[in-house]
C-alpha cells in the first residue's frame, strides 16, 4: 500500500511537470528541454529555506515560484527570440548552466553532497507527515495547476499561443506581440515546475543535483510527447504510463542501478518509436 502511494505521489509530481511543460511545447510549439532546471530551482528553494531558516512550506513554495519565475523570465527574454531547433538547443544550454550552478555553487547548494533533512510540509498546523496526507496535498496542487492550465488554453490567451505555434509571422501581422506571449507562457510553466520541485524536495527530504539534469528534462519531454502534445489530459496519461512501466522492471528483479538505465533506455526507445510511427502521441492534437 505504501508503495502504491509512493507511485501515486511520483505520478502527481510528473503530471504537474508534464502539464506545465505541455503549455510551452504542445500549445506554443516551442521545444523546451530545460524543464528540469525549474523543477530544480523549486526543490532547492524549499530545501534551503526549510533547512537553513525553517521557513514554512507554503512560503518556501511561493519563494520557489518567484525565483523560478525570475530565472525563467531572464531565460525567456533570450529564448523567445528563437524558434524551432535553435530554441531546443538554447533551452538545453540553460539546463546545463542551471545544473552547473546546482553542482558547483557548493557554498550554497552543498554541491554533489546534496541537501538532507528537508522538513515535511506543515500548513496551518497540519503536518503532512504520512505519505497519504502528502499525496492529498500534491493532488490538490495538481488539480490547481490542471485547472489553471485548462483555463489558460481555452481562453483567448491560449488561442494566441496556438496561433504562434501554427504560424508566428501571421499572428505578428495581426498585431500580437508574440515575444511577450512566448515569455509569459514560459514563465508560468516554469513556476508550475517549481511547485513540483518544492513538493519533491519535501517528500523525498533529500535532494542533490543529479535529479535536475538534461536527462530529466528529456524524461519530462518523453512524457508529454507520449501522452500527446497540446493535450493536457494526454500529459497525465503519459506520466502515468512512464511512471508505471519502469516500475514493472523492478519486479523482473533487475539491480537498482541497471533498472535506472533500463528506464532511460525505455524512454529513448519510446521517443524513437513515437517519432517513427505516431509523432502526435497517444491522444495529441499537434505534431512537431
Amino acid at each position: 500500500m505504501e508503495y502504491i502511494i509512493h507511485l501515486a505521489i511520483l505520478f502527481v509530481l510528473y503530471a504537474i511537470l508534464g502539464v506545465s511543460l505541455n503549455l510551452v511545447v504542445g500549445y506554443t510549439g516551442l521545444l523546451s528541454v530545460t524543464h528540469a532546471a525549474f523543477y530544480g530551482i523549486g526543490a532547492y528553494a524549499t530545501a534551503l529555506l526549510s533547512t537553513l531558516f525553517e521557513v514554512p512550506f507554503l512560503i518556501s513554495v511561493l519563494i520557489g515560484i518567484v525565483v523560478a519565475g525570475f530565472f525563467s523570465f531572464l531565460m525567456g527574454m533570450v529564448l523567445s527570440r528563437f524558434r524551432g531547433d535553435y530554441y531546443a538547443l538554447a533551452s538545453l544550454g540553460f539546463n546545463v548552466i542551471m545544473y552547473s550552478i546546482f553542482l558547483n555553487w557548493a557554498s550554497v547548494t552543498r554541491g554533489p553532497l546534496g541537501i538532507a533533512g528537508i522538513a515535511k510540509p506543515e500548513i496551518g498546523g497540519v503536518l503532512f507527515s504520512s505519505n497519504l496526507l502528502f499525496l492529498l496535498l500534491a493532488a490538490i496542487c495538481l488539480v490547481g495547476i490542471y485547472g489553471i492550465s485548462r483555463f489558460m488554453v481555452s481562453s483567448s490567451f491560449g488561442r494566441v499561443l496556438k496561433a504562434i505555434r501554427e504560424d508566428e509571422t501571421v499572428i505578428t501581422i495581426f498585431g500580437y506581440r508574440t515575444l511577450d506571449y512566448k515569455l509569459v507562457v514560459f514563465v508560468i510553466s516554469a513556476s508550475m515546475a517549481a511547485v513540483a520541485g518544492s513538493l519533491f524536495a519535501s517528500y523525498i527530504s533529500f535532494i542533490d543535483p543529479s535529479t535536475f539534469t538534461v536527462m530529466e528534462s528529456i524524461f519530462i519531454l518523453a512524457i508529454i510527447i507520449l501522452g500527446g502534445l497540446a493535450n493536457i489530459k494526454g500529459s497525465m496519461v503519459g506520466a502515468l504510463f512512464l511512471i508505471l512501466v519502469p516500475e514493472l522492471l523492478r519486479f523482473v528483479g533487475l539491480p537498482n542501478d541497471i533498472a535506472g538505465y533500463m528506464r532511460q533506455f525505455l524512454y529513448g526507445i519510446i521517443l524513437i518509436v513515437l517519432m517513427l510511427y505516431r509523432p502526435q502521441g497517444l491522444i495529441g492534437e499537434y505534431k512537431l
Binding site: 521545444l31 524512454y267 529513448g268 526507445i269 521517443l271 513515437l274 517519432m275 505534431k287 512537431l288
Partner: peptide, 19 residues
C-alpha cells in the same frame, strides 16, 4: 518529417544508446 521530429528522434537515440 519535420526537422523537429528528427531532432526528437535523435534525442531518443542518444538517450537509448547512452543507457
Amino acid at each position: 518529417a519535420s526537422n523537429m521530429i528528427l531532432l526528437v528522434a535523435s534525442l531518443g537515440v542518444f538517450t537509448a544508446l547512452e543507457a
